[in-house]
């Protein structure tokens, strides 16, 4: 029999394998973000939020919802995207992937697709959890889903690259801890950048996360720190950079093949 031009069975096998891993740990996967989100609501939404004034006409407790969802989506996408490819490297089962008739595009599609699926699901779970605490009205549902999917894919891809690059579990953790956490906190997850002094506001505009959170928040409330078109453009730009890096990685076999 002739080899197919697209190995759909291969993509499905990897995707199913990754989703099975997710389902095995479904409780850890879901309970942790739900508890974390609830804690944020207790602290920021109720305790502190009740003393905060509205932000651009949005009650503070509602204002932080898109930022909270994004925080989890960033973390989970990077974790799942990186773990999916790092673990086979670590335990040695990568041999099978490297000797299989799957193209690089198919490998990325399967791993990143599975990681992004989990992130989108988690994002929606957090949204549902949040709606138990505050009434949430989503202005642009289509855009909200669009941003959620796009950002999940982008960060899963970013995680995938991280997983290929990492040679140890320490390296795997260092980027999310050292880079993503500060960028997210300084990226307007809990405040509007209008609240910052002008100099800091300018500096913040160099933080790519600002554009992602701003765009996502716009889809909820119709107000944003930066123009939504710019947010969308930045998200696509980041996705393009990740795609370019992953293309180079596969072309050179970097850290995968000798």
């Amino acid at each position: 029999m002739n080899a197919p031009r697209f190995n759909a069975y291969g993509v499905a096998a990897i995707y199913r394998f990754e989703m099975a891993r997710f389902m095995r740990t479904i409780w850890q996967s879901l309970v942790t973000p739900v508890i974390t989100t609830s804690l944020y609501f207790v602290v920021f939404g109720s305790a502190i939020g009740s003393r905060m004034s509205d932000v651009n006409g949005v009650p503070y407790a509602a204002f932080i919802v898109p930022g909270l969802i994004m925080m989890t989506v960033f973390t989970e996408s990077i974790f799942n995207g990186s773990f999916g490819i790092y673990f086979p490297k670590f335990v040695g089962t990568i041999y099978e992937l490297l000797s299989a008739p799957v193209s690089y595009v198919e490998v990325v599609l399967a791993y990143v697709g599975a990681a992004a699926t989990k992130s989108v699901a988690l994002g929606l779970v957090i949204l549902a959890t949040a709606s138990l605490f505050v009434p949430i009205h989503i202005l642009h549902v289509g855009w909200m889903i669009g941003f959620l999917v796009l950002i999940s894919v982008t960060f899963s891809l970013f995680g995938f690259i991280l997983g290929i690059w990492a040679n140890s579990f320490e390296q795997l953790n260092i980027v999310p801890m050292l880079i993503m956490t500060p960028l997210t906190f300084l990226g307007g997850a809990f405040y509007s950048i209008d609240m910052l002094p002008p100099a800091w506001r300018t500096l913040t505009l160099f933080n790519p996360v600002v554009y992602l959170i701003s765009g996502f928040r716009w889809s909820f409330f119709g107000t944003a720190d930066v123009a939504v078109g710019l947010s969308f453009g930045m998200t696509l730009g980041f996705l393009a950079v990740c795609l370019a890096v992953v293309a180079v990685v596969f072309k050179t076999g970097y850290r995968l093949k000798n």
């Binding site: 199913r16 335990v91 089962t93």
Partner: peptide, 21 residues
Amino acid sequence: HTDAFEKVIATVTFSRGLFGR
């Protein structure tokens, strides 16, 4: 090199799919 947490039948079924069958 094995997937420690997978079931035997799942890991063999996975291999078949991965190789495009």
